[in-house]
C-alpha cells in the first residue's frame, strides 16, 4: 500500500504539470483537448474511501487550476467526479465481485467493463467541464462538439497510455 501511495504521489506530481504544459496545448481543430490528468481519478482503487478520493480529486483540480488560470473550474468538476467515482464504478462491476486493492484496469475489471467505466468517467468530466465553461459564451452546438470531441480524444490518449503501462507490467 505504501508503495502504491508513493507511486500515486509521483504520478500526481508528474501528470498535473504535464497536463498544463503539454496536453493542454495539444488541441485538435480548436475544440478537442486531451484531459490526460483524469487518469489520476480513474485509476484510484475502489478501496480508497470516498472522503480521501474527494480530497484527492479536489487537489488535482485545484493545482491544475493554478497552472491554467481557471480558478475553481477544474476543482469543482474533479471534486464531483471523484465523489461520483464509486457509484459509476459499480454500474459496471457488481458489489459482490471480489475486488483486490488494485486500481481499476482491464485486468482487474475485465476489458469491456473497464472500457465502459473509462468512457463514462471521461464523458461525465468533459460534460461538466465544458458546461461550467459555457457560462460565458453559450452555443449549444459548440458545447456538444467540444464534449464529444474532447471525450473521444481523451479516451484514445488514456487508452494508449493504459496499453503502454499494461505491457510494461506484464513483462
Amino acid at each position: 500500500m505504501t508503495k502504491y501511495a508513493i507511486k500515486y504521489a509521483l504520478a500526481f506530481i508528474l501528470l498535473i504539470p504535464a497536463q498544463a504544459i503539454v496536453f493542454d496545448h495539444a488541441i485538435l481543430f480548436n475544440v478537442a483537448v486531451p484531459l490526460v490528468f483524469l487518469y489520476l481519478i480513474i485509476s484510484l482503487p475502489v478501496t480508497v474511501g470516498t472522503n480521501l478520493s474527494t480530497l484527492l480529486g479536489f487537489l488535482a483540480g485545484f493545482f491544475l487550476d493554478v497552472f491554467c488560470d481557471t480558478p475553481g473550474v477544474n476543482a469543482l468538476c474533479c471534486t464531483i467526479l471523484a465523489f461520483a467515482r464509486k457509484p459509476l464504478f459499480h454500474l459496471y462491476v457488481s458489489l459482490d465481485d471480489d475486488l483486490a486493492s488494485r486500481s481499476p484496469s482491464s485486468v482487474t475489471m475485465g476489458h469491456a467493463a473497464y472500457m465502459k467505466y473509462m468512457i463514462t468517467m471521461v464523458l461525465a468530466y468533459t460534460a461538466m467541464l465544458f458546461t461550467v465553461e459555457a457560462f460565458q459564451f453559450f452555443s449549444f452546438k459548440l458545447l456538444i462538439l467540444r464534449i464529444a470531441a474532447s471525450s473521444a480524444y481523451t479516451f484514445v490518449v488514456l487508452y494508449a497510455l493504459d496499453c503502454l503501462t499494461m505491457r510494461r507490467r506484464d513483462t
Partner: peptide, 26 residues
C-alpha cells in the same frame, strides 16, 4: 467533505475579478 470542497470550488469559481486574485493561485 463533498459539500466542503464544492463550496470552496464555487468560491474560487465565482470570484472572477482577475485583479483581485492572490498571486499564489495564479
Amino acid at each position: 467533505v463533498f459539500t466542503f470542497f464544492v463550496v470552496i470550488s464555487c468560491m474560487l469559481l465565482f470570484r472572477d475579478d482577475p485583479y483581485r486574485q492572490h498571486v499564489y493561485i495564479t
